[in-house]
Amino acid sequence: MLKSILQTTVITSCLILSGCSQLFDKHVEYEYQTPDSFPVLQAIGYAPISLQPGTTSEQKAIMAMKASKLEAYRELAEQVYGQKVDAQTNVQGMVANNDTLKVRVQGVVRGAKVTKSYAVGDMYATEVELDMKLVHDLYIGQTKPRSVKKVTYF
């Protein structure tokens, strides 16, 4: 009987104490963190005009413009995200008989702008730049990253 009363008292005390913690409210202040500096990344993409598909020189030039722009964006993605490199070498009889290297770039580039687009001989070049301040602002607008600045309990 004494054991039963003691268990009931302990359980009741635990419930009362845990209930008191819900009486307190808290206010959390957050702060947004901004880097000290923002670089401007630049990249150039090239594409040969004469090797493009098309029946007229104008069609080939337009295709080269598109290809050089995509190449420039790929260069930017490499700078932002890096490259994934897969390499494999097979050796048989102490002689390398098969050596493969695969490189892949994957990422989303937002906020880049074309600064120049021009022909150089049979090549078409496109220059693009990416202001990391704009990328930061776009990121903040979407995800709103923050850290806890202060917690006040009432």
Rank of each mutant, 00 (worst) to 15 (best):
Q52L: 10
N98R: 09
V40T: 04
E71I: 01
K102G: 14
S68G: 02
Y124A: 06
P53T: 02
V28M: 04
C20P: 05
K3N: 12
D99E: 10
L17R: 10
M132L: 13
T115R: 00
L101V: 07
D86Q: 03
R110I: 08
T152S: 07
I62N: 09
T152I: 08
V105N: 10
Q92W: 11
N90A: 08
L15Y: 14
L15D: 11
R110T: 11
Y30D: 01
I62H: 09
S50N: 11
L51W: 13
A61E: 05
M1Q: 11
Q88P: 02
M94Q: 14
Q142I: 06
M94S: 14
D122A: 05
L6C: 05
Y32S: 12
K26R: 13
L130C: 06
V148Q: 03
L134P: 01
L101A: 08
K150F: 02
K60I: 00
S57L: 03
V80D: 05
L41M: 02
R104S: 15
L17P: 01
L76H: 01
E58I: 14
V151Y: 08
T12K: 13
L134S: 09
R74N: 13
G82N: 06
K84T: 15
T152Y: 12
D122Y: 11
G45E: 07
E129A: 02
T34C: 07
Y124V: 05
Q22M: 14
G82W: 09
D36V: 12
T143E: 11
K150S: 04
T55N: 12
G107C: 00
Y46D: 03
G19M: 09
V40Q: 00
V103C: 03
I5K: 15
D25I: 04
M123Q: 13
Q79G: 04
T12M: 14
R146C: 07
A125N: 04
L51C: 03
E71Y: 06
K60N: 01
Q42A: 15
K69V: 11
S13F: 12
E129I: 02
R104T: 15
T152E: 11
S117H: 04
S57M: 10
T115Q: 05
Q7W: 14
E75R: 10
P39K: 06
T8P: 03
L17T: 06
D137W: 10
C14V: 13
H136G: 04
K66W: 12
M132H: 06
F154W: 13
L134A: 03
K133R: 06
M1W: 15
I16H: 14
K150V: 05
V128W: 02
G19P: 06
A43N: 05
A112E: 00
I44C: 08
E127K: 10
K149A: 12
E31N: 13
S21T: 15
L70Y: 15
K69G: 10
A112T: 01
A47N: 03
S18K: 14
R104I: 11
R110V: 02
L138A: 08
G82P: 04
S4Y: 15
Q42K: 14
Y139T: 05
I140H: 10
